[in-house]
Design a protein around this nucleic acid. Sequence first.
DNA 1: TATTAGTTTATATAAACAACTAACTTACGA
DNA 2: TCGTAAGTTAGTTGTTTATATAAACTAATA
Lengths: 386, 386
Amino acid sequence: MSRVTNTKRVLQELFNQQETSRADIARDLKLNKSTVSSIYNDLDEQGFIEEVRVGHSTNNGGRRPQMIRLDRNYGFVVSFNIGANHLSSMFNFVNGELIRYNRQPIKDSDILSIMQMIKQEIMRMQCANETKHGLLAIGFSIHGIVDNEKIIDSPFLQLQGIDLQQYFEHEFHVPVVLENEANLSATFEHDFYIDHVVKDLISISIHRGIGMGVIANGSLYHGFRGMAGEIGRALTTTDENGHEGALVKVESLCSEDAILKQVRELVGPAKFKQERLADLYRDSADVQAIFNRAARLLAEVAYNAEVCFGPQAVFFNAAIFEELPDFYNNLKQELTKLGGTIPVKMVHGSRLTSLYGCASLSIHRVLQMDGYHLKFKLPKEIQLAD
Amino acid sequence: MSRVTNTKRVLQELFNQQETSRADIARDLKLNKSTVSSIYNDLDEQGFIEEVRVGHSTNNGGRRPQMIRLDRNYGFVVSFNIGANHLSSMFNFVNGELIRYNRQPIKDSDILSIMQMIKQEIMRMQCANETKHGLLAIGFSIHGIVDNEKIIDSPFLQLQGIDLQQYFEHEFHVPVVLENEANLSATFEHDFYIDHVVKDLISISIHRGIGMGVIANGSLYHGFRGMAGEIGRALTTTDENGHEGALVKVESLCSEDAILKQVRELVGPAKFKQERLADLYRDSADVQAIFNRAARLLAEVAYNAEVCFGPQAVFFNAAIFEELPDFYNNLKQELTKLGGTIPVKMVHGSRLTSLYGCASLSIHRVLQMDGYHLKFKLPKEIQLAD
DNA sequence: TATTAGTTTATATAAACAACTAACTTACGA
DNA sequence: TCGTAAGTTAGTTGTTTATATAAACTAATA
């Protein structure tokens, strides 16, 4: 093993254990104590190490270990999600812990003014910075196809030829990472859901469109030209009343946007604005019908994915499920009907998943730990329910 | 880099170039000439190297290189495919080249007598052996679910509790590998179709059942408990005449076995035996209808897979396509109708793909090169057509 | 004579090893 | 109860060993 590899393995150990010691690391990695000691000194010099406390001896006695962990004050990363009406931003310490989450409305959808907001947001945090190295990386959660750090298609955001990565790398002199939103949610579920080792999972995101992120063999799977998991673009027929309908995209029928649009058209814009979605659902069989069809379609899509990938678990990220648990329960029933057998999980706090996933991606990049599994603590704002 | 890694990289280079030289390897791997020289001597001692010819100098002069390649006479591997009526076996040199292919009928389907045949087949080759190390590994192509070298489910072959791996490892003292048939075909397409670099592909096999093998990020994807690609088990409705039918497995409608059974029932056993399948197809609209439905179903399945995985190419391995090209063309049309855009390839010589894939797997195992891409020469008995 | 292939020798890096110090627990005798 | 010896564990400091590189070599060409 080369020095570089061993250093990465020590850093990984430092990251993944709550706290550890040099002796522990040597035992776990089957390295000599002196090797670990040497690498430790390198890492310490770079500011990666925080001494937590002095540990206990065993019952047999012996010198007490100095317990250490990754120093979260090494630096921070920031992630952005440009939504339909809001710009979400999240700052995280290098260990993934939350520093600040913010969600601000976007008045006009002009890309330049959004970029201005992003810049301000970063500069504000840079002023308040108390970490050793400050800003380490910037990440963007993209609602579109991303291949090899390049945005191939961005249906919901007009970029007007602007290269986000290039601009912000020049502005802040740190790496800028771009990744598809569903892929980032999948990354979140893989890296933060660490009670169980899940190396193969799919994560279905339902927001303005529908996307699926895939973790295969413990790492994100992009497919050719980033096309993996583009299930929203799958075609289905609009066969409503028995007679065969036209071929349309799945997401034009059961994305959050599409569903809300159907409900709005059904109940009228006034009532739609006044009442809560849950009330509209409860009181109207017609509204329920819209959701039932969406649930059926989503179940089909999820079932197909389950058969193809044979994952260990399926995750759903959808604010509309949180708002309307009946919708989710309906979907689960439809899935069972089709023959689905894999555990299905629903994320409470789906607004945050792609940002946390983005933080993980940035941190991997900054630490040059791509391909290494870093385990993050599940934030308390997010729950994974059945 | 450690010695072990560098040795593997040199061996990989030796494998993947038709012929090369020490100087070339040093340049390609960016290693020092002396490092390569040292590793070369190790490999030479082990018998991996064959000196081919003395190369040419450049126009500037200079000593001529000694051209070398992997010595195929290092040893051989053997692969078996236990089919419905036949036992296929294939012997390959360590570089993947064919030594012998054999297909013999199985009189009774008793597992013990099949094992006896396998043993004899191997011993016969061991007698004729002229390679340095003889038999290196034994592989089995399994029509069923395999997880982590264990057969989870084998619907077409009654194993009666016999552990193939354990038995043959004890008998011949070489590693025995087990892998799913569709996965092996996918491995073949990945490792032998080397004109284009294809890191993400799916390979659909239609024989007694229907299976899909997946190469993701350049390596075989198994999914949780080997369940990836079990598309034959997907459910579909038997909605024939407008009214909704029962849920049945896809492979119960469009596997080769299922199709032939339907045709036999339609035309009667006598006629089915006498005439060629192509003639039956040409002469009967009813027979065509059976195939058309199968084509539609297969297109659906393939399209779903394409959307989920976003592969660079889709391969079909099916003897029935070779026998009936119209069936395949039909499938391609249906795929286009659904919106498929990915290149589709059909394998001529599909009987051999899983055996060649198995050889690749065994060779990877023997050389301890798992995770390294070894490029094999496409055998002339197999063509990949559009 | 310049150039390239490949080997030999010397040197630097880094991992393992062995022996060390530091700091603890336990057992036991006074 | 105290004190001390024996045993255990953490972590450091030379020393040895493995291995990659660099430099200097030989061999063989245009």
